[in-house]
Amino acid sequence: MTSSETPEAKARRVWDKAAPTYDRQIRFLERVWFTGTREWIAARARGRVLEVAVGTGRNLPFYREDVQLSGIELSPSMLAIARRRAAEAGRAADLREGDAEHLPYPAGSFDTVTCSLSLCAIPSPAAAIAEMYRVLVPGGRLLLVDHIGSTWPPIRAGQWLVERVTIRTAGEHFTRRQLPLVEAAGFRVAETERLKAGTIERIHATKPA
């Protein structure tokens, strides 16, 4: 990152570069580490759904046919792949380029907001979660899945060491935890689950009615 490069510009540059090989790399991790993540998200989504940081659109085939899909993505290269994936699947989806910390939608636009494996790399996850709260209707659902700091100290120590490189080069964190931010934003937590030695957390929360 140059001295004048903003965190958002750095993230866009990193993910534009990663886009051509992202699907191949994440496929293996989905089998051994993120198992069932996309199915868990999609099974709980209802109504007008916004996926924040939609990436290459790997969640799109899993959503129910009766939901109305929208997605936001910072990286134009990732977004192009998501649009192609939606078209090939015959799936209608309003996919836009934009920043998770400044969602381009009016308050109360969605019944469900989802975000998977992305808050770990968003520069300000608290700002992004506050935006998710804003665009949800009262009673709306927030569905998050991310990798977080392990409950097992040896693994967490390893994650901390890896972060010394990944934060600097790609802005990616391995020991962040989103649950306190979700609670601080005003959501009511309905369901949580930690998997894989506590390194994966699923959160289902609601905006108070």
Rank of each mutant, 00 (worst) to 15 (best):
H204C: 12
D94W: 06
R38A: 10
W152L: 15
R188A: 10
R44Y: 08
P123G: 11
L179T: 05
K207Y: 06
R164G: 12
A100I: 05
E183N: 00
A42Y: 13
T151Y: 03
R156F: 11
R177D: 14
C115T: 07
I72N: 05
R38D: 12
C120Q: 05
I41V: 14
A42D: 08
R141W: 04
I41N: 05
S75D: 03
L117N: 07
R24V: 07
G36M: 10
E97P: 04
A42L: 07
E101N: 00
H204L: 15
L161M: 14
R164K: 14
G140L: 07
E97T: 07
H173F: 06
S109E: 06
E201H: 12
V137F: 00
Q25G: 02
I26H: 10
G171V: 06
T114W: 04
R176D: 05
R13E: 08
A190W: 03
A107E: 13
I203C: 08
L142Y: 04
L142W: 02
A121M: 12
R84Q: 15
V54F: 07
A197L: 13
P76Q: 02
Y63W: 02
V135E: 05
A121I: 02
F187I: 06
R164T: 10
V162S: 08
A197M: 03
G171K: 06
A100W: 08
E8F: 08
L103D: 03
S109F: 01
R177H: 14
V52L: 09
T21W: 08
K10Q: 15
F174S: 09
S4M: 05
R188H: 14
Q25T: 11
E88L: 08
G57M: 05
H147S: 00
G108T: 02
S116C: 02
G98D: 07
A19Q: 12
V137H: 07
T151H: 12
L119K: 11
F34G: 13
L179G: 02
T37D: 13
E183P: 00
F62Y: 15
T56C: 00
Y105Q: 04
